[in-house]
Write a protein that binds this DNA or RNA. Sequence first.
DNA 1: CTAAAATCCTGGTGGC
DNA 2: TGCCACCAGGATTTTA
Length: 266
Amino acid sequence: MPELPEVETIARGLRAVLPGRRFTRVTATWRPMVERSPLDVVQQLPGRRIEEVGRRGKYVVIALVDGAILLVHLKMSGRLYVGAADEPPDPYCRVTFDLDDGGQLRFRDPRKFGRVYLTPDVESVVGNLGPEPLDGGFTETDFLTRLSQRRGWIKSLLLDQTFIAGVGNIYADEALFAARIHPLRRADALGEEQGRRLYAAVRCVLERGIRLNGASLRDGMYRGGSFQTSFCVYSRTGEPCPVCGTAIERARIGQRSAHYCPVCQR
DNA sequence: CTAAAATCCTGGTGGC
DNA sequence: TGCCACCAGGATTTTA
């Protein structure tokens, strides 16, 4: 579920409670979740103190006072939250981080896809990520140049984390709709006008997602939840396009579903 | 370089 | 109501 706006929302929430806390114990119920970490999370995290909480792409980045970094990728179904250690156990909690104030940081992930990394060098984990779409360093000129150098489908390119960090299937579909671009257009075939619209649309939908506190995090992920108010095309197959009324179509693009308006998006 | 397919997992949804 | 195939917002690795 979490894409950039959702991860940003989660990181902001953690930032309010984690800085200053020290990890006292780590319990990994599901080993694969911590096995790709450069440093042993269970053995080496306890004793370290939290400096600050941030985000890079879809990673929650927890900087430690000694310079090491703890990164969490939530993948499809992960959630990070803080509670009291004596709260009822969560059957889907895969990694538990005990804190020095009696609190507990819990990594809940029903599908077990999530990963945790402890490393002295952040770049060893996030070094291949593309630019942060909401950073000042991400310029329209740079975006247009890099677009022109890629020949693949624009939808697949938006999902490529080495091209831009943080965009997932929902926001890719929403950005393409806002920019009125068909998901199967080739990146290098987009005109300058369309490239500009896409640049603005990507930032716009992500900012809106953050303003809504991670739109897809809200209550029901499905019908009746935030989809009814937050998204124009995602998961709305068959429903009328909010602009022209044509039924939204769904197609398989690069193993992922794409939702789009066949009339508005060209 | 581009892209497809398989893979890691489980729970919810919708069709029958 | 019950069963079951299918679907899922991610990303890497392998293969073509």
